[in-house]
């Protein structure tokens, strides 16, 4: 029986989805790329749950690569302002229920995270440490005094406003700038990370394989010490396609884990994109 086309669920501007679908077509594999917001309209899938909790999906034959983070806001033309939040929540919950129940999927969502990662940054540090990786010192505080104490302990501090993805780095010598930054939004909680000097690295994990890349020097890396721990971390999080960022010290020292995502970015593995695409396609085909 002919396998149904692979389904990539990703936003229109998703470079990873673009590269994978081009690669798959080049390999004469059939791929459908559907935007998450269009999912119900285009595919009209159905989910049936029996009295004993058995789930049946109308798309169960499809193999899915999900690149869904939070859904984009509901378009103003579709919903009255008072209904937009409700509609957005419903769309997100329906997609989560569908993807979590789907039998053939890369990066199955977690109950509280549709991307599949399920861990916030501080939880990632604890999980990484438990997997045997080095992590930076960190603290969360609403008090400037505590922030300054933290800065005293370290050469520099990175201020992370959770979920903003903005990280501002302040070397100890620029203490006043840190004070200004924190005083600018008084008492809003901030996550402070130990600043580190070294090379920014990105590790891409796809279907059991790892690729390490030195972003600063633009070269492939080997991280033999971290290899087993990273595999263990991704495995424990139930991820099959993920990326970890870290810092490699200039001199001797261990690679330090600085976070991970279940939504890898293509620019961080461009030199190996064919290898990664091959691994992903291979994994999706195995699921048939």
């Amino acid at each position: 029986m002919r396998a149904e086309p692979i389904l990539i669920l990703a936003e229109k501007d998703d470079a990873v989805a673009g590269a994978l679908s081009r690669y798959a077509r080049h390999r004469k594999k059939s791929v459908d790329w559907v935007f998450p917001r269009e999912f119900w309209r285009v595919l009209a899938p159905e989910l049936r749950i029996s009295r004993k909790g058995r789930i049946q999906s109308s798309l169960s034959g499809r193999r899915i690569l999900s690149r869904c983070g939070a859904l984009r806001p509901i378009a103003p033309r579709d919903w009255a302002p008072k209904d937009r939040h409700y509609a957005w929540m419903e769309a997100q919950a329906a997609l989560l229920a569908f993807l979590a129940a789907h039998p053939r999927i890369i990066n199955r969502p977690k109950p509280a995270d549709i991307s599949g990662c399920g861990l916030r940054l501080t939880e990632q540090f604890l999980a990484a440490e438990a997997a045997g990786l080095a992590v930076p010192d960190w603290t969360v505080t609403t008090r400037l005094r505590a922030a300054l104490r933290f800065l005293k302990r370290h050469e520099g501090v990175a201020v992370h406003r959770d979920h903003s993805e903005d990280i501002y780095c302040f070397p100890r010598a620029k203490r006043e700038r840190l004070v200004d930054e924190l005083a600018g939004s008084p008492r809003s909680p901030v996550l402070l990370l130990q600043g580190q000097i070294g090379y920014l690295t990105v590790t891409t994990f796809a279907a059991g394989q790892l690729w390490h890349f030195d972003v600063v020097r633009q070269k492939r890396l080997d991280l033999p010490d971290a290899e087993a721990s990273l595999r263990s971390l991704f495995g424990r999080c139930g991820l099959e396609f993920a990326q970890a960022v870290g810092i490699l010290p200039e001199g001797p020292g261990r690679w330090v884990f600085h976070g991970m995502t279940a939504l890898p970015q293509l620019r961080h593995y461009l030199p190996f994109s064919d290898e990664v695409n091959e691994a992903l396609l291979g994994r999706l085909e195995e699921m048939a």
Binding site: I55, A97, A101, P111, D113
Partner: peptide, 16 residues
């Protein structure tokens, strides 16, 4: 995070 009832169908598929 595992304790969420963020999606009702997700939850009921786990409670029979």
């Amino acid at each position: 995070p595992s304790a969420s009832n963020f999606s009702k169908p997700y939850q009921i598929s786990r409670i029979a």
